[in-house]
Design a protein around this nucleic acid. Structure first.
Lengths: 145, 145
DNA sequence: ACAAAGATAAGAATCATTCTTAAAAAAGAA
DNA sequence: TTCTTTTTTAAGAATGATTCTTATCTTTGT
């Protein structure tokens, strides 16, 4: 646990208080595990990892907590065409590259898109809050198989 | 049914043959309905519409057919964070604007992104096949509520 | 028209997620 | 601290979306 995650943890706790969410060991551990994970895990994957440390943690709590945190903007649900929902801690702006074969999700930055204004046709649609690129392809590992 | 959809239909049938997929009335109607729809419908929505014309059509066939056509690239499954899968006919390159409130999906074009090369960091990842922007916000209809 | 392979309908089964309920824990007040 | 109120949790039932199984029917090439 380095300074960054320490800081992230403190920020998380402050954000919970501000949102009127109680700080429970479950929420703290679920957030910590998600922040540490780099693979945009599903509820089930997170639960599998956490049960080692918190044997009584229920899968339902993981689902419920991820939903709660996402609805308060503390974490993000990732856009995918998979059947299982996957999550990530809302980090600095980034985009996703998804392997059609192994489903691994790779984060990348693309500031020219971040800074670009959306086309005029979109202006009359409503209020746009965020925009992300989702690219699909086959990663090198899978290409070699 | 105008010339465009007529043409689209012929192209669909040719693509099925080429892919070794048999041309059944179910597949033809499912594709036709999806091509006509502008709302990126789910399997259930499509089934509801089609049953009027094809009373014996099973929901399972709609699911199966959408899966088959998507795996052959004839249609696309849309990236969303919804629980139901939604589909669209693979049209000319476009992007999506999704309303967080009513879930309506609006298509738009953004050629500067289409033509832009991905950042260098991505080049070593593998083979990228497509890239789409997914923007979230609240549409005007919902803002007025 | 005929055989072989593929596709469909119906319903059972499965997977992912949410709901229900009673018990346990957090936060604020005394 | 202890009490009180309200939230959160665990467990398992329930639901929603999708897929599988099987027997029957169709398409397609001959």
């Amino acid at each position: 646990m380095n300074d960054l995650s320490q800081e992230q943890q403190v920020a998380f706790q402050a954000a919970c208080r501000q949102a009127g969410l109680r700080l429970t060991p479950q929420r703290i551990e679920i957030f910590r595990e998600l922040a540490r994970a780099k693979d945009h895990p599903s509820a089930e994957t997170l639960h599998r990892r956490l049960v080692e440390r918190m044997p009584s943690l229920s899968l339902d709590t993981v689902y419920r907590t991820l939903g709660t945190l996402a609805s308060h903007g503390l974490i993000m649900r990732v856009d995918t065409i998979e059947s299982q929902a996957r999550y990530e801690v809302a980090q600095l702006l980034h985009h996703h590259l998804i392997c059609r074969s192994c489903k691994e999700i790779f984060d990348f930055q693309w500031q020219s898109v971040d800074n670009a204004a959306l086309p005029d046709a979109v202006k009359s649609w409503g209020r746009v809050e965020r925009k992300n690129v989702v690219a699909y392809g086959i990663c090198n590992k899978c290409l070699k198989k």
